[in-house]
Design a protein around this nucleic acid. Structure first.
Lengths: 122, 122
DNA sequence: TGAACACATGAACAGTTGTTCATATGTTTG
DNA sequence: CAAACATATGAACAACTGTTCATGTGTTCA
């Protein structure tokens, strides 16, 4: 990360702050990891996808059932399932013409649950 | 949720599916809760904000230190801190001219940790 | 094999979002 | 009080994202 700040050294240099900056830098995860993490949460950050995940919380469902439950186009649902699949949040199995989707692992459930806890606190 | 699907009843009506749909509907959280949940994850879904959160993981920092660490404008950081604050992900305390930010509660740490686990699995 | 069905996907358009730039607010110090 | 400093905020613009519409792929069944 190259600083883009101006010559203005912002809150002087003779603070406790330089020590703080150094300490943080020592423990900061790699930039690309943080980027991937943001990408992951971006997937959860859409109400359509959240609804799909919650609808799959208890059991697998086929695409058109999801669409019916959510009152959405099959196409829209399919596009979102594609994204969820690409990020390993859902898996699928094919049975004849229909494709059944389900949550991929328990991380998904845990993350959803933690998020729920947070918003229900305030 | 009002179904917007066409008259095409999509994958017939005489499937196992109707039963599935009913079961899911019985356990589905309220629509506005799901919406709020998506809004929460949307906050985590930006790499700048993720970086800010991680930079605050171990200790509080002032705005300009965060900006320096991230190589970003003070303004950009301030805008993001505003969003994080509004969603109770960070809190702040004022000390003279400088404002120190820190993570608001441990949910934030837990959610970040779970996300990290997920992306490091594949 | 061909029609019907369930699902996938590409292009395009509208709405949303993050950054920049300029400026405002609030605090300290002389 | 005025100047300096740390931070906050409003407007605007570029980039991204989700939906729609049209069409493509793959499977079943007559």
């Amino acid at each position: 990360m190259t600083p883009k700040m101006k010559a203005t050294p912002c809150c002087g240099q003779q603070h406790h702050h330089q020590e703080a900056v150094d300490q943080v830098l020592a423990h900061l995860p790699q930039e690309d990891l943080l980027y991937d993490l943001a990408e992951l949460f971006k997937i959860f950050g859409d109400s359509t996808r959240i609804k799909i995940l919650y609808v799959l919380f208890e059991r697998e469902l086929c695409v058109c059932d999801i669409a019916q439950l959510l009152g959405m186009t099959q196409s829209a649902v399919s596009h979102q399932l594609r994204i969820l699949k690409a990020n390993s949040l859902v898996k699928f199995r094919r049975q004849g013409k229909t494709v059944f989707y389900s949550l991929d692992d328990d991380h998904v459930r845990s993350i959803l649950a933690l998020g729920m806890e947070h918003i229900q606190e305030e």
